[in-house]
Computed example of a mutant assay.
Amino acid sequence: MKVMCLNGWGGKLHEKLLPYLENSEPDVLCLQEVIHSPESSKDWLTYRDGDHVLAQRANFFRDVSNALPDHVAIFCPAAQGVLWDQDQPVPSQWGLATFVRRSLPIIGQVQGFVHKGFSPAGYGDHPRSRSAHGVRVYDDSAGRSVSITHMHGLRDLNGKMDTPERAAQARRLLDLSRQISEPGDVVVVCGDFNVEPGSETLAILADAGLHELVTGRGIESTRTTHYKKPGRFADYMLVNRVDAVTLFDVIHDPEVSDHCPLVLQL
Rank of each mutant, 00 (worst) to 15 (best):
V82C: 03
I74F: 03
T163V: 04
H152C: 01
T215R: 08
L213C: 07
N66E: 01
C5K: 00
V137D: 08
T222W: 07
R130C: 03
N59L: 14
G209V: 06
I107W: 03
H226P: 06
I106F: 12
V256D: 04
D63G: 04
A79I: 04
N158T: 13
L83Y: 14
V263K: 01
G124C: 14
P89V: 06
H126S: 10
V250Q: 02
A58N: 12
N59F: 15
N7W: 04
V114L: 06
E39H: 11
G112M: 03
G231E: 11
A58R: 10
P197Y: 03
V64R: 07
L238V: 03
S131D: 09
D235W: 02
Q93M: 14
G191M: 01
Q32A: 10
P197R: 04
L176F: 11
G11N: 01
A244R: 08
V187G: 00
A206V: 00
L29T: 00
T201W: 11
A206I: 00
T46G: 03
G10K: 13
N240G: 07
V64W: 03
G218C: 11
S41Q: 14
I204E: 09
P164N: 05
H71C: 04
V137F: 12
V242R: 08
T163W: 05
E212L: 10
V245C: 04
S65A: 11
V82M: 02
A121T: 08
R101Y: 03
E165T: 10
Y20M: 04
C76K: 08
V72A: 00
C76A: 08
Y123I: 05
L6D: 05
G112K: 02
T225K: 13
V110G: 08
A132Y: 01
V72K: 06
S181E: 07
S40P: 12
S147I: 05
A79M: 14
R101H: 12
D185S: 05
H71S: 01
L104C: 11
V28H: 00
D85E: 14
Q93I: 02
P105L: 10
T98P: 07
K12I: 11
D162V: 09
P91C: 05
A208H: 11
Y236R: 04
G50Y: 15
A73T: 01
K229S: 03
